[in-house]
Design a protein around this nucleic acid. Structure first.
Lengths: 225, 225
DNA sequence: ACAAGTACTGAACACGCGTATAAGATACTG
DNA sequence: CAGTATCTTATACGCGTGTTCAGTACTTGT
């Protein structure tokens, strides 16, 4: 079908290292920087150094570009997770993604998570699935306490991680720690954010007698559903 | 100055129960339903059943309307919190707001939290302050464990609560529980969300030996700042 | 070398947007 | 009653948007 100067039988990868990929990456960059609604065909075109018409020519519409960006980010994340799955259990949903090299993935996520799309929904579902797996690993290896509701715990932990990412501006204002920074974990202010988290993860925040009391309150009202 | 058919010396309240307030409420409703970027002068005008020009006439610009909405929601929340402050400590940032009667406050928050604005930043800061106060109360009364970093704990807990709110669509998809529902806490699916949370709040998720290990790791790298 | 098809651009279209302006309606003040 | 200030609307302007279209450069297959 289409080829540049290389062998045309590779299909996807040839198609991808060309202008079309540059435009897609420009879209990801623009969304990561300015958000979805501020990402216009002309801005993307200017970043990719092409004409606005070419954006439409390659992706059909701005919606098509959006889908392509979502899809690409999702598969990139999935691929990267597979590669680093052997790192072992991790409670930070984003820990693995931080080391990913392909552009501003985390900032893109922060912008896109709030505004729902099918690809993002699938991505989040995948992250929850992974979290559930990681947690199970942790339980098996004796690092994490077991639970009656592994799925619920995975959803809550993922929501906390991703939700904090979406609110990164507030967290940065309040703690001086920017979650969208790729090197966030090595910053000196990282402890201000991670410290309280692992304090809660470690021992909880409820005093013992009250903890078991609340615990029973909620294990009564469910469990039989 | 301005009055309808009532005494003109009350100032604000007279100004407020009239068309201007209807437009402001229409703005809040529209933002809560469709988000900020989708909230246009014409849509707001249609909801308030007035002409688009009147929106500008009363608020100067769409930015003015946005500010007025932010301000109104913020003061409404602040007022309501003051009224129900005697309820005692609470770990759910939104628990108090749920009972607030004035329209879709929570849905408004969910739409606005991601997209920063000065009023929202102040509101979030206030919520963190309140959380810190609540937590201190809890510690004093023996319900909550003390911490070396009360501020950090308050920020993290608030971020978790608000972040989950922003991601309500994902949580609803995964757990069947809608955080923007004013009566969310009475729904039968509430336990699926609240259960895991209070399990973590109660006992944490890390097994004891590993917990203290991680704990020391992070108390070493900070504390001296 | 020639035909065909693809990559790419510049200009233009229709549309929805925020907003200004002028005029009409309405209600207070004297 | 007239005068005046405010409320409210209809209309229109300018702009940025997504997208279309005609046309040019270039690459590819034969």
């Amino acid at each position: 079908m289409r080829s540049t100067t290389e062998s045309p039988d590779v299909g996807e990868s040839v198609d991808d290292r060309s202008t079309r990929a540059r435009i897609r990456d420009a879209g990801i960059t623009c969304i990561a920087r300015h958000g979805i609604k501020e990402t216009t065909a002309r801005k993307v075109a200017s970043i990719a150094d092409v004409s606005p018409a070419l954006v439409i020519h390659h992706f059909g519409s701005m919606d098509g570009l959006r889908s392509a960006c979502d899809e690409f980010v999702a598969t990139t994340i999935r691929d990267f997770k597979e590669k680093t799955l052997s790192t072992g259990p991790n409670l930070d949903v984003l820990a693995a993604l931080r080391n990913a090299p392909n552009g501003p993935l985390i900032a893109y996520l922060a912008q896109v998570l709030a505004d729902d799309s099918p690809a993002v929904a699938r991505l989040v579902d995948g992250l929850v699935d992974d979290a559930e797996g990681y947690i199970q690993q942790g339980v098996d290896s004796g690092l994490l306490k077991p639970t009656d509701d592994p799925r619920g715990r995975a959803v809550v932990l993922t929501a906390w991680g991703l939700g904090s990412l979406v609110l990164h501006q507030h967290i940065e204002r309040l703690l001086g720690f920017d979650l969208t920074d790729p090197d966030a974990l090595t910053r000196p202010t990282a402890g201000a954010y991670i410290g309280p988290i692992y304090e809660i993860y470690g021992e909880g925040i409820l005093e013992e007698p009250f903890a078991t009391q609340v615990q029973q309150l909620f294990t009564e009202s469910e469990g039989t559903t």
